[in-house]
């Protein structure tokens, strides 16, 4: 007969056994949103760096400018995000020296995945979104999981507020579950304003989002940066 009693926990001389673990991961939170357009890509992050109920920084962008055609957003364990981007920077530099040209966005996307998967059994605790312009001049968003699975998508939200923001993007950008929606591609201005509004709304309901947002617009002319203040509580 199966017993449904929970098994007693192991003890030493009657005292409960204490398990001391190696716990190198910290969740410093952060939210990322990326939208790809016809000839541009927009990516935004919040500026708050936190742990638990404490704020570490009110001005820490989670966007890393990799080339003038690609920006990587990383959130999660901030130490891992910084470390990942340092190594990525080295790979990009080496590539530049060897090939005498910057890495294409598509190649960066594959490179990110390879680097994340190289740590398959001790992963970087980092949620990444890569935004850029591809070889054809089209906007591109690549979405990653922490161990390097990736996919090119029209829009993506990741990080702490990702689960709240993504359904909104599905509805407004993806126009899912709507009869005869306006399928015209999203304009740059609309995408920027959408990301601004998303962060304003996320700051209302997610305690880890606040202080400000950093938005980078990537076009064939390069990177354009926008900053916006959010509520500080």
């Amino acid at each position: 007969m199966m017993s449904h009693e929970p098994e007693p926990s192991p003890t030493t001389c009657g005292a409960p056994l204490l398990q001391r673990g190696f716990d190198p991961y910290r969740d410093n939170a952060g939210t990322l949103v990326g939208i790809a357009g016809e000839d541009f890509a927009v990516i935004g992050s919040d500026l708050r760096l936190s742990l638990g109920f404490s704020i570490f920084s009110r001005d820490q962008s989670k966007l890393f400018k990799l080339t003038d055609r690609a920006v990587l957003g990383s959130s999660g364990c901030w130490a891992d995000c910084v470390s990942l981007n340092k190594f990525l920077e080295i790979r990009l530099k080496t590539y530049g020296f060897e090939h005498n040209q910057p890495m294409s966005t598509k190649a960066i996307a594959q490179c990110c995945s390879t680097m994340l998967y190289s740590r398959r059994f001790f992963p970087y605790f980092a949620w990444n979104i890569l935004a850029g312009i591809d070889e054809d001049g089209k906007g591109a968003i690549y979405s990653y999981d922490p161990v390097g699975n990736f996919e090119r998508v029209p829009y993506q939200a990741a990080g702490n507020s990702g689960p709240q923001v993504l359904p909104f993007l599905d509805s407004i950008v993806g126009k899912k579950n709507q009869s005869n929606p306006d399928k015209a591609p999203i304009t740059k201005e609309r995408a920027i304003n959408l990301i601004k509004d998303i962060f304003i709304s996320a700051a209302e309901r997610d305690i880890t989002v606040g202080d400000g947002t950093h938005i980078i617009v990537i076009t064939k002319d390069g990177l354009e940066e926008i900053r916006l203040d959010l509520r500080k509580d």
Binding site: N193, K196, S201
Partner: peptide
């Protein structure tokens, strides 16, 4: 009120007939 509600610029309503 130490932190007021943020002001959004967009309107996110749907035209009638969106739900089939």
């Amino acid at each position: 009120i130490v932190c007021a509600k943020g002001v959004r610029s967009g309107l996110y309503d749907f035209p009638s007939g969106t739900t089939k």
